[in-house]
Design a protein around this nucleic acid. Structure first.
Lengths: 233, 233
DNA sequence: CAGTGTAAATAAACGCCGTTTATTTCTAAG
DNA sequence: CTTAGAAATAAACGGCGTTTATTTACACTG
């Protein structure tokens, strides 16, 4: 019955969803830190306190938006991976990376919400976001591990032996996460992520285009060069 | 005489400088978007409107902070470069890149101010910031060009031929900037910047440390691998 | 069908914010 | 000693997140 009553005026979950939609539009217009409850309320033709019926505070709304963003990103990379599951490793790697960039470019606000400057007053509940932050990359981890095991990924000489500071940290991470792969593969994954992430950030803030023009062309070229360096075909 | 009067109460440029110092402290505490004139005034034990005697608006204060940040970053890389001017290309490259990271890590607020999310209401005066944004990288451009000309930098196979979208854009950029170097070198510079920038961003938001531990060790390793790929010693 | 419980919306208020205006303070020059 | 003018202030405007108290409007009950 609570459910039936809920459907009466505010239409329950539908309204909560529309608040999030409006919030995303607000962030797209004024930046992630430009989000305002009163602005959302104005755009929805309601009063600001009404939003408190659906989210206890602005922070909880932001948390919901972050969860949605991570989930959306993960679904994008997972869908891309599923579509090329039986193709060569290179195609799978490219598909995942391209999906990552494509999502970032078409959802810049959500991307900056999860990977850009934190919103001033906001404090993320870590126990909630850590597993979320990991999910978009699970596919890449498995791809790297399986491709290496199949012998179609060669670790470049530069990554053969690593400084002790990194080896000990990687050992600890492998223990805690129960993922088993050569240390060099972990470092190569971080290196690849840094390249991909950096390229997207530079493109997003227009540091890339004045020099090399098309961001996607540069991105594809970078991923191709990275794969070539690993001998992944 | 205006100068003498200025020195009377507010102490002129000294006060303007202290406003900027306080503003940086505020940004460090509450994020770049958490800057507030009233907060600065409170910390300085003056009233908010008094700040308008030194900066016409919050935006102008932000612009001044951005100019300072770019200048400080450029001075850091230039100083690092000057200190190793007569050493091998690898050492010079490493010095510049390390200075870039070191500055970013020790001035995270300023780094995010110039390379992170824009502050909600703020609009940067482009004609002012474009040359500023270029300065920190001039050293690297010259280093790459001269090292290539000396024959001690080999362009990797993956960068030998580039897609047309990029070649035409690079041609246009070279025309407008009057810098002459092979297209591949421009792309390699952007690739290197993306790697460096991405690694710093990931470290800054603690995405790196859980896996590889020490951010600096990873960074040094990445630059070393990049140099090795180019045959730069 | 009237009465009641309750979710959801509102109005009003509090202390923040950037900014403008008018006013006061204080120093230095004449 | 007077006065010009820079620099600080007080007061106010509209907007912000949030809380409190109140009203609205619907679904169920008797």
């Amino acid at each position: 019955m609570a459910r039936a009553v809920r459907a009466a005026r505010g239409n329950g979950a539908a309204t909560a969803n529309q608040i999030k939609v409006t919030a995303r539009a607000q962030m797209a217009a004024h930046g992630t830190a430009g989000l305002s409850l009163r602005g959302i309320a104005r755009a929805m033709a309601i009063t600001a306190p009404a939003i408190y019926n659906y989210f206890p505070s602005l922070d909880d709304l932001i948390t919901a938006l972050i969860i949605d963003a991570f989930t959306s990103l993960a679904e994008a990379t997972e869908a891309a991976e599923a579509a090329v599951r039986n193709q060569p490793p290179f195609d799978r790697m490219m598909a995942i990376c391209l999906a990552y960039r494509q999502w970032a470019i078409s959802h810049p606000t959500d991307f900056l919400l999860i990977y850009g400057n934190p919103i001033p007053g906001y404090q993320a509940p870590e126990e909630l976001t850590i597993p979320l932050a990991r999910r978009p990359f699970l596919g890449l981890f498995h791809l790297f591990a399986s491709t290496f095991e199949a012998g179609t990924l060669q670790i470049p000489p530069s990554y053969q032996d690593l400084p002790d500071e990194m080896s000990t940290a990687i050992a600890a991470w492998k223990r805690s996460s129960a993922i088993e792969m050569p240390d060099a593969l972990v470092v190569l994954l971080m290196s690849g992520w840094a390249r991909v992430h950096g390229a997207i950030m530079l493109e997003m803030f227009h540091h890339l285009q004045p020099l090399v023009g098309d961001g996607e062309a540069f991105f594809v070229h970078e991923v191709t060069a990275f794969a070539a360096q690993l001998g992944v075909r």
